[in-house]
Amino acid sequence: MALVKLATPIDEATIRTLHVGDSVSITGRLYTGRDAVHHRIHTGTRPPVDLEGQIIYHCGPVMVKEGDQWVCKAAGPTTSSREEPYQWEVMRDYKIRGVIGKGGMGEKTLAACKEYGAVYLHAIGGAAQVCAASIKRVDGVDWMDLGSPEAIWHLWVEDFMAIVTMDSHGQSLHKNVFEESKARIEAMKA
């Protein structure tokens, strides 16, 4: 298992060097985007930021405004499978190089990772303080009309840790674990 340092924006060649099981440490911009953001992009609205080479973080943070500044109080990953109908399209149309979330994604996203050059990065679900500790600044927010947890927050992170669980070579840890656990549970059936 390698630890790879990534700085956003990321080029396709770098992403193609990553494999399932690699640990990554990310420094740079992350944009949050979850259910409502993906749905709005899917229905034809262009994102308000340039996503090329960027990573979308499936996250609905706890944000509190202190004076003029937004402060991030908690920011772990949300379940990614809900974006399965939309994520491949965002990879194709806006050239994102990765998404961070939890729980993994399905076949459409796995195929898009391979075709367009992207990875799925798994953060530790529920670990909102460990994730927030890597968020050094909140530089802006778009689409606040969707509500704070659903808005696009512009985060600046340093050494944000995640594990590659779906790579651009067609490999998915989630697929492997599901198949293996299915066989084991079947064998233990009462």
């Binding site: 609905g60 109080k73 908690a74 530790i124 529920g126 303080q129």
Partner: peptide
């Protein structure tokens, strides 16, 4: 994963901050 979870439990308690954003 379990190590990060352990760290997170401590950070939330010390900082009086939500353990999980949800």
């Amino acid at each position: 994963a379990l190590n990060v979870i352990g760290c997170n439990i401590g950070l939330a308690r010390e900082g009086s901050l939500p353990l999980c954003q949800d």
